[in-house]
Simulated scan of single mutants.
Amino acid sequence: MTAPATGSPGLWIRISHRFGPRNMEWFSGAVTFSFGCVLLWGDPVFEQPAWRGFAQFFGSQDIFGWIMFAMGALRLGALIVNGARKRVTPQIRQVAAFFGLVIWFGVVVGFYSSGAISTWAAVYTWLVVAELSNIYRAAHDQGESAHGRVD
């Protein structure tokens, strides 16, 4: 990839170099953000039987939608800042992945508590596994950063 005509080539190289290894973190942040958007601007899903657990815990689809929207936006913002920085901060990614793990585990528990088994069991459980991988990768990057192996 070539650097854009304007701006710092070093910034573009850092962002493009770091995106690939962190693409699952970007994916999880985008899914969280999109999940929130659908809850905020979509149909009333909390009325469906599979969402009974969420309705009991959050009370309102809007509350859960804003939580997901905000967590996704924060994570994407943190990845942008972290990718643009000359010195990486894997701790931010670890914290974001931990919150992602909590979110997706909570989504699995929410659906499970409804008693309705559907495609959620095939999708959201894998997002939990992906977040465990994201935590591991960020911790690995922190180790390399501490020992001078990451720029």
Rank of each mutant, 00 (worst) to 15 (best):
G110L: 03
S34V: 07
G110W: 04
V102N: 09
F111S: 10
R149A: 15
V38K: 11
A84Q: 03
R52I: 05
P9A: 15
N82D: 12
G36M: 04
W66C: 14
R52S: 13
W12A: 15
L11M: 12
S34C: 10
S28F: 02
R85F: 08
L76P: 02
A73M: 07
W126T: 04
Q56M: 05
I135T: 00
V128K: 04
W120S: 05
G36T: 03
M68T: 08
V38N: 09
F57A: 15
G42E: 03
M71S: 08
D141L: 08
T2F: 10
Y136E: 09
V31H: 02
F98C: 08
Q91N: 12
M71H: 00
F27E: 07
P44L: 10
V107E: 01
G148V: 04
V128A: 03
Q94F: 13
G83H: 02
V95R: 05
P44G: 08
L76K: 01
G106L: 03
I15H: 04
G72I: 02
V108M: 13
A121N: 15
G10N: 14
V95T: 04
K86C: 09
G42W: 02
M71E: 11
F111V: 10
S145N: 13
G72S: 05
A139R: 10
F69Q: 08
V38S: 11
A130R: 04
G83P: 01
V45W: 04
W120N: 06
M68P: 04
I80S: 10
P9I: 07
R22T: 05
G100V: 00
G42F: 00
G143E: 15
A30S: 07
A97K: 06
Y136Q: 12
T2V: 10
E25G: 12
P4Y: 04
I63Q: 09
L11C: 07
F111W: 11
V88A: 11
S133A: 15
K86R: 14
A138R: 06
M1K: 07
M71N: 06
G100F: 02
G77Y: 01
